[in-house]
Amino acid sequence: MQLVVARIGRAHGIKGEVTVEVRTDEPELRLAPGAVLATDPAATGPLTIETGRVHSGRLLLRFAGVSDRTGAEALRNTLLIADVDPDERPEDDDEFYDHQLIDLDVVLADGTEVGRITEISHLPSQDLFVVERADGTEVMIPFVEEIVADIDLERQRAVITPPPGLIDDRAEIASARGESEADGPAEDGQR
């Protein structure tokens, strides 16, 4: 199985280094010197990582055969793709690879269907499930213990216990409050 593990950003300096937007929880494994990565677009790869280092909180990589700024700039926006064994699991039982979570059905604790995970968004503060609902809309669900109660890979589902308002439609919230959508919330306790 192939997974996107990073996107190449702008060139850094004049010796062929590039900034990298990491898209893996294990950059030390997937983006280590010596790793050979496929690319998208495919015409630019495969690329072999020669060196890697962190500078001002950003990962910088240099690839074999890319020794100047012009070569590095030509790689900008290229996706780096690693081959991953689909049965491989993180060491911690409470951790999951993105490919294990994509396409899981998302349900409430009572079994009510919410949607399907289409993407994992890795933000600095937390990860988010991007969930596509049956009507085609998307909802973002924080991947935190308080909300995601269970990940069941056998049954291919994620069970969530969301706080009020996280997945509710505006119409449903308004209906529960006894107001129409156009009314909006009452201000200053007045109606």
Rank of each mutant, 00 (worst) to 15 (best):
D68C: 12
E28D: 13
F129K: 04
V159I: 15
P164T: 13
E187A: 11
L80S: 04
V130Q: 12
T24R: 05
D188Q: 08
V144D: 03
G57A: 10
R191A: 13
V159P: 01
T137Y: 01
F143Q: 04
L37T: 14
R133Q: 12
Q126C: 03
Y97P: 00
A186H: 12
I14A: 11
L153G: 09
A74T: 07
I14Y: 00
H122P: 12
H12N: 12
A176S: 14
P27V: 09
I160T: 03
I160G: 01
G184V: 09
E132F: 00
S67N: 14
E50S: 10
Q190N: 09
R170E: 15
L37G: 07
T19Q: 07
D168E: 15
A32F: 05
D135K: 03
P86E: 03
P164D: 14
A38E: 13
G34H: 07
I14H: 02
T161V: 12
D150V: 05
L59W: 08
I120R: 13
G16E: 13
L104S: 10
E17Y: 04
D150T: 08
P86A: 01
E119P: 07
D110C: 12
A171N: 09
G52E: 12
A134G: 02
L31S: 03
E145R: 12
L108T: 13
R10C: 02
R170P: 02
I141L: 11
V139T: 15
D110P: 06
D168M: 05
F96W: 14
V36S: 11
R133A: 06
F143K: 01
T70V: 15
A11R: 03
A32L: 11
I167S: 14
T24G: 02
V130D: 14
T161N: 13
V144P: 01
M140S: 11
S121A: 15
P124W: 00
R62V: 10
R133E: 11
G9S: 05
A72W: 05
K15V: 03
R30P: 00
S121E: 15
A74L: 12
G111Y: 13
V54D: 05
R116E: 15
D168Y: 08
E181G: 00
T137H: 03
H12C: 11
D169I: 02
I81D: 06
P86R: 01
D188M: 05
S56A: 15
R157Q: 15
H122C: 14
A134C: 01
L59V: 14
S125F: 03
E50A: 13
R53W: 06
R191L: 13
E187H: 04
S121C: 10
V144H: 01
E179Q: 08
D105V: 09
E179F: 07
S180G: 04
D152H: 09
E181L: 12
V66H: 10
Q126K: 05
G71L: 08
T19P: 01
E21A: 14
Q126P: 00
D135W: 00
Q2W: 01
E26G: 01
R177N: 04
R53H: 14
